[in-house]
């Protein structure tokens, strides 16, 4: 996973969430399907894609998928 496009593709394919581009920056509360189980699925998919363990405690501070991407990508 090198780019935000890779990330969006991963969310769509691995989570089965129909994600529009503009929703990447949207508050997580604005995503109709988003909940803690989708977070687990996303963390699992990201860990498989990056080969690194993710700090869930820090991810919980993220308010958007874009922020989760930044934490996962280490940027």
């Amino acid at each position: 996973m090198h780019t935000i496009d890779d990330f969006v593709r991963l969310v769509r394919d691995e989570l089965g969430m129909p994600l529009e581009e503009y929703q990447v920056a949207a508050d997580l509360d604005q995503l109709p399907e988003w909940d803690s189980l989708y977070l687990l699925k996303l963390v699992t998919a990201l860990e498989q894609a990056t080969g690194r363990s993710l700090p869930v405690g820090r991810l919980l501070e993220a308010r958007s998928l874009g922020e989760i991407y930044q934490l996962a990508a280490g940027t």
Binding site: S36, L39, L40, V43, T44, E47, Q48, S53, L54, P55, V56, G57, L60
Partner: peptide, 11 residues
């Protein structure tokens, strides 16, 4: 299971 341990703790 190949899932995140911390997530199980928290949620």
């Amino acid at each position: 299971l190949g899932v995140n341990e911390e997530w199980i703790d928290v949620f």
